[in-house]
Nucleic acid binder design. Structure first.
Ligand SMILES: NC(=O)c1ccc[n+]([C@@H]2O[C@H](COP(=O)([O-])OP(=O)(O)OC[C@H]3O[C@@H](n4cnc5c(N)ncnc54)[C@H](O)[C@@H]3O)[C@@H](O)[C@H]2O)c1
Ligand SMILES: NC(=O)c1ccc[n+]([C@@H]2O[C@H](COP(=O)([O-])OP(=O)(O)OC[C@H]3O[C@@H](n4cnc5c(N)ncnc54)[C@H](O)[C@@H]3O)[C@@H](O)[C@H]2O)c1
Lengths: 211, 211
DNA sequence: CGCGGCTCGTGAAACATTTCACAAATGCAC
DNA sequence: GTGCATTTGTGAAATGTTTCACGAGCCGCG
């Protein structure tokens, strides 16, 4: 059903198509063409069709794609037909923003626990969540059946925390700390580095001014 | 000095090399090899050398790269020899995390203003910053000489706010709202979509379980 | 039913990026 | 100074991704 290897760029676009497909659905559209999706997503119709073609052929020639059917198919491809249990490691400012963000739960990602090292934070409540001691990390992962960890600590403890997470059997980590985590091949790591985003903007500005 | 077109992936890696180079400098190393940098950055030595070769040749054969000199050169390439004045559009939770983040100022990005639409937020203070009325956006951009805007509002008003920012002459936007902004070609936009990151993790998990 | 206007699905071509492999420097030991 | 171990810089090859172009299917209409 799924091909051996699909480019990361393709998977990211599929997630974006799904978002706009849901917008089309909200507007009551029942079919959508590759061109219309492409325009919203900032790509080309050929790209949309190629991306989808890796997983099968879902469209009707001359008509386009059935909005609800393609949405369901994309959710299935992306593994969004189920919910995921997420642990926040680090209870700082960024963790606070992520924990309260309704968009994650809307997509099936439930933050079920938060841990920190700071005694001043342990025990405080974030909505329905209580900040737990990072010492209990292993117990919490098991008890809460955590599947995805989000690392939002400073850089220094990140590798060691990742090692502990991996040891408990976690296989998916979203890492905000500016380090390159060393993990076994079975563990999926996605890095988000906001400073790098700003620096690529700086590069673009610098480069434009020179020309 | 700069080649016509350098891949975005290369620029991102340069920013990452710079981070680790600073770590090496802190540890007192005065030279570093492409292999050592590659290991820290999670790539290969050939990749490091190729990336750098787009901008000149900074190494000494048999020795490696001079740490302070390469750092200075990377800062110059990335346009980080100066400071940037940044405006936060939207004073929500994510904006709060970004505003307080010391790492941006350390890199030369100073948040000089925050605007919001919510009367309950306007006038409140965030450290040295006072949240301003979004109606005064154009005046603030000019008065504060803002060069980079960070969009952290919900999706709905994002395009309209981007239009206003572009009209004031802003040419760099970091967008957190899940929309594809339509802007003139001279304006640089970088999108950060955290939900997409989680969804690509979901895809990876889904796909692994099937095999 | 046959035709015309659309739009998909998909190989092939074009383009982009990464990896390879090796000549050319460099420093150091002796 | 010579030789050796090391590491850069870079064309060329390999690999990966996007764009192109067109056959094939679908709908509606007369
Ligand atoms: N806030 C931002 O806008 C931003 C931007 C870019 C990158 N980041 C990165 O995200 C990470 C978190 O940023 P933040 O602003 O939330 O930082 P923060 O300082 O507000 O929060 C970090 C939290 O981690 C906790 N912590 C420290 N060591 C720990 C350990 N060993 N185990 C468990 N918890 C521990 C701290 O007690 C603190 O509560 C950092 O790595 C930062 O570089 C943040
Ligand atoms: N918080 C997260 O973890 C997270 C994760 C992924 C994506 N995002 C995206 O980032 C954006 C901001 O998220 P957040 O959690 O900070 O949301 P938030 O609701 O906490 O903050 C949004 C702020 O924007 C303000 N605003 C609304 N309309 C405005 C307008 N027209 N002009 C000026 N300000 C306006 C609101 O008053 C509010 O203060 C959203 O688009 C969200 O989808 C957030």
């Amino acid at each position: 059903m799924h091909p051996r290897k699909v480019a990361d760029s393709t998977v990211r676009r599929l997630a974006i198509y799904l978002r706009f497909l849901e917008e089309f659905a909200d507007q009551g559209a029942d079919t959508v063409s590759s061109g219309a999706l492409a325009q919203r997503a900032g790509t080309t119709s050929a790209q949309v069709r190629k991306d989808l073609s890796f997983f099968g052929s879902f469209g009707k020639r001359g008509l386009g794609y059935d909005v609800p059917a393609l949405g369901a198919r994309l959710r299935q491809i992306l593994g969004l037909t189920r919910r995921y249990r997420v642990l926040l490691v680090g209870a700082g400012r960024l963790a606070g923003a992520l924990a309260q963000y309704a968009g994650f739960a809307a997509r099936g990602f439930d933050v079920v626990a938060v841990v920190d090292r700071d005694p001043a934070k342990i025990g405080t409540c974030w909505g329905a969540l209580r900040v737990d001691d990072v010492d209990r990390l292993e117990k919490i992962v098991v008890a809460e059946r955590v599947e995805i960890a989000i690392l939002v600590t400073p850089a220094e403890p990140a590798q060691q925390l990742a090692d502990r997470l991996v040891a408990t059997g976690i296989t998916a980590i979203l890492n905000f700390a500016p380090v390159q985590l060393q993990v076994p091949g079975v563990v999926e790591v996605k890095n988000v580095n906001l400073a790098v985003e700003l620096e690529t903007l700086s590069y673009a500005l610098q480069h434009r001014e020179e020309n």
